[in-house]
Design a protein around this nucleic acid. Structure first.
Lengths: 208, 208, 208, 208
DNA sequence: GATGAATGAGTTTTCATTCAT
DNA sequence: GATGAATGAAAACTCATTCAT
């Protein structure tokens, strides 16, 4: 992709405006939910006229979709990059947990939206979003699964469950702990150490 | 509490009507979300006049809250009963997973709502609901935690993590697998065997 | 008219119920205005079922009309009786002012309604009411006028204006002072002495 | 204050629209009363969309209040100006009666509303209005009272009653005669000559 | 190209009135 | 004859979207 800095001034300006609209929309949507934010409110917060907002996004739905999808892409790219940084499967998982946590911390607003979308709250209203998000999610779960698969092949991991199930499990564990933190950061400070989560997967609860 | 069958006819009739309104509301809310369902729509689906709906529920919010809370109570009662049916900690966990699955299967619609509420999608709009739900959830997590605690004391379980964390982990695992099934039942048929989930917790991924 | 006590029990009972409905309605209407009182509210306050209320009054409008008209009749009867008690014109006027004041004090609630109707606030909504009230008012003004007329004939009064105008003037003076008291009884205590009002009419502001 | 004609076109346009809304609202309110006029009706009559009406007035209450208060101000300004035009107390009173009559003739619609508000028909519903109107009324009564006071001091007027009472009396007289005309202009043509009213006050009914 | 005034469909809610029990 | 549950028309108000300037 062309670097932003290399774009003609006009285009750069456009992108900046789009980002400002995104920022305002994200803040409001994550605080109040899709239906409790009006386009006027977004326009006002972004300091644009309502008409300008509509120049950039066909309608409220499109704005919301773009917001969720672009952020979701950003997250998955970060996660994919994280697991690709090393060849060691255990280290990959550790990087995954660490990066997912970091992304959470830095993007609480968008995470709220993302959860809303991935956790059934969207009710398929914003038609199409569901599928696009699900697809990305699914793809990443396969990436995780293949890590488990190769770990099992290398006898690094015991074959306690299908690699796909292990991937789902790890993702579920992460979400559970991150949700804990999301809801009351002061009560459940997020464990800096990713091994708290990984240990549960790695060590058996029951001695053999 | 008096059995429903023993109630005077008038009361029974009232309850039946209330249930019909609940059913219609649940169906619509779970399909389209709180803001995409109008009270007229609910009344029409329930085959009552709009005024009658308002005789039963002060306003849309109340209806929604009652719907979520009453179902949430039903779930937690079922889960609590399940873990109390046996004294064996492992069996308790097995009952928990089995019951949670069963409840899921039988109440997909309301589960969607419940997820929406427990997973942050409600955006605190429906003030108070959040807290009431969260409280019930928290309480049950503690119930789970105490099972792990006593299991660890009895040396049934290895001490691989704090009991509270183990509870969060198990719940997260269940949710992850159930969400899988919720989204595409045909592709990921829910494992009839609760041990698929429990194994991941019980067996260590890494051999000692 | 047949005396109430001589009526058959059934009829007496009916009248009692009607009075109870009237009392509740009057209290509510005078406190909150026609449109801010619901038939349910009236029924509840009168301790009757809504259906029973409708057995007595065809609809809300009828109830309101009956309320205003019957009370208005009561007032005009009292006023007519007052001016008929003596043959002296000055005493007649004094009795009028005195009685009007007394009626005011004792019927503040209904006075509020009456003012609303006679002072244009009803906006002809309650079609027909206007005219019926106006007619009674008009009739009484003529009664007053005839007092002035005969007073002028007897040379008791100076011929400073048409008798009809004098009647309107006296009524207006009374209303103005009574309104003063109606609005803030503590600030403008109603003059026990009717001569405060009559003096203004009797004595000339400008010396001849 | 800047003259309306000098305002930028946009502002002038705004004012014109507001006036059109006011006109439609005034007409309807005065014909049918606050509760019998819907915002849709007003919008339709003013030939604006309902949303536009709400852009100008936060809600129905605000529209009504603005209508009553702005007109009430206009009236009191006219009356105040009228009594300030001359130094002679008698002439002041004559100007007052004349102006009040003229205002009546020209603003029958708004007078209906004004009467409704000043004569207790508003039932304190439109909270705050009562007081704001009453305050203006009270203030003007004091203005009148001070005219009587200085007239009495100058021995122009006999000291037949307290100045405040004389003010109330004159206002009451005017209202009574104007109400007469308001109700049936054809039957009781308003006396062009303000002295018909003033005479009643000026001349004594009873010879000394 | 940006603006924001204007639009009106759609939503929640109330309440007068009816009528089966 | 009394009751009050059920009805649904109608009201206030919001907000996504358009389009003339």
């Amino acid at each position: 992709m062309m670097q932003e800095e290399e774009l003609p001034r006009r285009e750069r300006e456009k992108l900046r405006q789009r980002r400002e609209m995104f920022d305002a929309a994200l803040k409001l949507f994550s605080e109040k939910g899709f239906h409790n934010v009006s386009m006027h409110e977004i326009a006002k917060n972004a300091e644009f006229a309502i008409g300008t907002l509509y120049k950039f996004f066909k309608n409220k739905e499109e704005l919301y979709k773009a917001l969720v999808i672009e952020n979701s892409d950003r997250f998955h790219q970060a996660l994919t990059k994280a697991v690709e940084e090393t060849d060691d499967e255990i280290e990959k998982l550790r990087n995954y947990v660490r990066t997912k946590s970091a992304v959470f911390m830095d993007n609480i607003s968008v995470i709220r939206l993302y959860f809303a979308e991935t956790r059934g709250a969207s009710f398929n209203i914003k038609a199409g979003l569901d599928n696009e998000i699900r697809e990305r999610y699914e793809k990443f779960i396969y990436t995780l699964a293949s890590i488990f698969e190769s770990g099992i092949e290398k006898k690094l991991f015991q074959n306690i469950a299908a690699p796909y199930h292990l991937a789902v499990a790890l993702d579920g564990l992460c979400n559970a702990f991150l949700a804990l933190w999301l809801e009351s950061p002061e009560k459940h400070p997020y464990p800096a150490d990713p091994d708290v989560i990984l240990n549960i997967l790695f060590k058996g609860l029951i001695a053999l």
